[in-house]
C-alpha cells in the first residue's frame, strides 16, 4: 500500500492540507485553542498510503505554509503549532514502526492528537503562561484531543475507503 510520492504529489497533498487549515482558521472556536484539526485528515491519508516521511512533509509544509498565509509565522501560535506538529509526527512514526498494519486511521489519530496537545501544553507552560494553574486545563484539552482524533480518524478512514486502491506514481 505504501508508495513513494513525487514532489508534485507531495505538494498537492500539502496544498490540500493548507487549504483545510486556512478554512478551519476562519471558523470561530467556542474555546480558544480548541480546534478539530481537520487538516490532519490529509496527513492521516498520506501516512496510511505513502508512509511516515510523506506525512511528516505534509505536516511540516502545512504548519509553515499555513502560518505564512495567516500571518502568524514565528509568532506564539506558530511555535505552538510547530511543537504540536513535531510531537504528532513523532507519535505517528513510533506507532507506524512498532505496530505495522495493526492500526487504522483512528488508532493513529487519537495518540497523535494526545501527543500534539501534550507538546502544546508543555511549550505553553515553558514559554507563554508561567503558571502551574495551566495544568488544570489539561484534562479538558486532552478530552477534546481524543474527540478530535476520533473525528479526524473516522473521516480519514472514510476517505481511504473511497480512494482507488492503487495509485499511479507518475
Amino acid at each position: 500500500m505504501t508508495q513513494s510520492l513525487t514532489d508534485r504529489q507531495l505538494a498537492l497533498y500539502a496544498a490540500l492540507a493548507i487549504s483545510v487549515h486556512l478554512i478551519e482558521a476562519g471558523i470561530p472556536s467556542p474555546l480558544p485553542g480548541v480546534k478539530p484539526g481537520l487538516a490532519n485528515v490529509v496527513a492521516l491519508v498520506v501516512l496510511l498510503r505513502h508512509g511516515v516521511a510523506a506525512a511528516a512533509w505534509v505536516t511540516g509544509l502545512r504548519v509553515v505554509g499555513g502560518s505564512l498565509l495567516l500571518g502568524t509565522f514565528l509568532g506564539p501560535s506558530f511555535i505552538l503549532a510547530a511543537a504540536g506538529g513535531v510531537a504528532a509526527v513523532a507519535m505517528l512514526a513510533l506507532l507506524h514502526t512498532s505496530t505495522g498494519t495493526l492500526l487504522g486511521p483512528v488508532g493513529y489519530a487519537v495518540p497523535a492528537a494526545i501527543a500534539h496537545t501534550a507538546a502544546q501544553l508543555a511549550v505553553a507552560r515553558l514559554l507563554f503562561i508561567p503558571d502551574p494553574g495551566l495544568w488544570q486545563l489539561a484534562p479538558v484539552l486532552f478530552a477534546f484531543a481524543v474527540a478530535a482524533g476520533i473525528t479526524t480518524g473516522i473521516i480519514a478512514a472514510g476517505i481511504i475507503a473511497r480512494l482507488p486502491p492503487r495509485h499511479d506514481a507518475s
Binding site: 488508532g107 494526545i114 481524543v146 475507503a161
Partner: peptide, 25 residues
C-alpha cells in the same frame, strides 16, 4: 472504519484522560 486495535487505542486514550483529570484536579 474502526479495527479492533483502534478500539483498544481509544480505550487507553480515555483511561489516560481520566488519569490526567485525577492527577491535575
Amino acid at each position: 472504519l474502526l479495527r479492533p486495535a483502534d478500539f483498544a487505542v481509544v480505550s487507553l486514550a480515555v483511561l489516560f484522560v481520566a488519569a490526567v483529570a485525577v492527577v491535575s484536579w
